[in-house]
Design a protein around this nucleic acid. Structure first.
Lengths: 305, 305
DNA sequence: GCGAGACATAGGATCGACCTATGCTTTCCC
DNA sequence: GGGAAAGCATAGGTCGATCCTATGTCTCGC
């Protein structure tokens, strides 16, 4: 393989017209540079310099090589600069997983925070659905994420709780909101549940199942939808009630279900919002930055864990 | 110094998402590739891959590096192709020295010959003045040249005669052309001499001096000009006579001095046209090509040496 | 012709690249 | 869950490339 060192020696020699001067510039001995040039000539199977009494003179091949060698070396420098930039977060892409209420609460503001600090970066918030986030975390494609979880043991994942988010009962029927909803009432309710809080995080699901089990019933939902927005709309239409995160209720009810309201459960139930990443992984500066900013954002809205 | 090998290992690993697969593709062992990647990471002070259970996954830094690494390697390939091209004379520049009558006789046709055989090359025929050609030869900037010379010993230069070119007396006065010009008549003539044949090659000068010396006179010229064309024009105007190469006379007289003619000297005198290059130098294919073609051209016009 | 300058060569020391063998972690499958 | 398989990391050793100093050889200038 052709080496960059050889090209550097070649260029120095070309510019000085002398092996000795090139060696001095590069901080090597004259025979070393001589050897590199010869190796390059052997590698390219062409003579680059004519050895003329005092000094060396480039051949036509040398003249031809020069601009290419310069381009290669400048591209290498460009490469190093680009990577140095990413190291200091001046450029490149930061990817962060964010799913569930966390996304609902903090996504836009979080991106704004990052861009305010590092105007050059590109930000990707991954979170189309929870399977996606977990899968990418597991495969290592995603370094860290902030999601709502049930417990703290997630098969090889390190889970760091940062906030808790109350689960509330939402309904278009004001009568049902007059007092906190107990497990008994929950078991008899006609519910629409969104994947967001139901399947995905396992958090709300576990919480609800526990509550309902205590009444001797099995948890059942009347309707299941993908996103919490749809669920809220259905609640607004009076087709069912639902259990969603309090933050989501505050955000979405006025907009999507103006007639509906919410009330706490009894006893109060909480989702856990946590930072998740592979256990025994050292996080990159970008990931640490995102964790710091996302935590701040979330705790400004939800109660700390 | 960052190495191309490291970049190649990086790219193979990136594409396969696996060190083992990359090693297989590159024909190395897995630990070797692993070491190269680690060296690259250390060199750039950034982590390029996350080691995740089965295989490796590029980090943001890895994603950033990839297009740059590709560019570097493709530039290197481009470099190698360019140099390979010059080696087989498909491209690049061929420089060849050519001065005096050789230039006058053969330049355009010689360029045509080269281009017919290698349409991609660029041709430079160096020969503004003789000092230039000799200087560039001596300094090694020019590999070889075809010029008119006096002898065969030119301080470190290898001289290979290829043809001889008669020197003739040119005049606008038909009376002076009725018989060959002897040394006596030459000594008494009013001459215009061009640098081309006078100072430069030392050939015509030596020849003439020898002839004139035999008469007891010193060689003297009435007019000295830079180029042979001007000398011929002056002859055409009847201001002086001249001694130039026969080939030049045949080419230039009809065009520049329609009324003038030429006659041989007595005894006939000859310039030597020769290939000149540094002694003990191995010539490049390009130079050998030029020598071959130029020799053919010259010998088609002048008598072989 | 002789000394200075510059490239080539020779020989030895050092460093890096590569390999094989093996250990450790993760994943997959029963 | 446990064992096999896959994949990366580590260890130790060999070999070649790189680099140095010392010296030879050629060219140039006085």
């Amino acid at each position: 393989m052709l080496s960059l060192h050889q090209l550097a020696c070649f260029l120095a020699t070309y510019e000085h017209g002398s092996l000795t001067a090139a060696a001095e510039e590069l901080g090597y001995s004259q025979p070393s540079v001589s050897e590199q040039i010869r190796a390059l000539e052997r590698r390219l199977d062409v003579q680059l310099f004519r050895r003329v009494g005092r000094g060396v003179v480039p051949t036509t091949a040398g003249d031809t090589l020069r601009p290419y060698a310069e381009k290669v070396l400048s591209t290498v420098q460009e490469t190093e600069r680009a990577v140095a930039g990413i190291r200091s977060l001046e450029t490149g892409t930061i990817r962060f997983g964010m799913f569930g209420t966390a996304r609902l609460y903090a996504s836009a503001g979080l991106v704004a925070d990052v861009l305010a600090r590092y105007p050059g970066v590109r930000v990707e918030l991954i979170g189309q659905n929870s399977n996606d986030v977990f899968d990418q975390l597991r495969r290592g494609r995603l370094e860290a994420a902030m999601i709502a979880v049930a417990g703290v043991d997630s098969e090889g994942m390190a889970v760091t709780p940062v906030a808790r988010d109350e689960l509330v009962y939402v309904s278009a029927d004001r009568d049902r909101l007059s007092s906190p909803v107990t497990a008994h009432r929950l078991a008899r309710a006609s519910l629409v549940m969104a994947e967001t809080t139901w399947r995905a995080t396992d958090s709300a699901r576990t919480v609800l199942r526990r509550m309902v089990h205590e009444t001797g019933h099995n948890p059942q939902t009347r309707i299941e939808v993908e996103d919490v927005e749809t669920a809220v709309e259905l609640v607004g239409l009076g087709l069912a009630d639902s259990v969603i995160n309090k933050g989501a209720a505050e955000q979405l009810l006025p907009r999507l279900a103006p007639g509906a309201g919410w009330v706490s459960l009894r006893p109060r139930q909480y989702d856990t919002i946590a930072i998740v990443h592979r256990a025994n992984a050292t996080l990159s500066p970008a990931a640490r930055l995102m964790i710091e900013l996302a935590t701040k954002r979330i705790q400004a809205i939800a109660e700390p864990a």
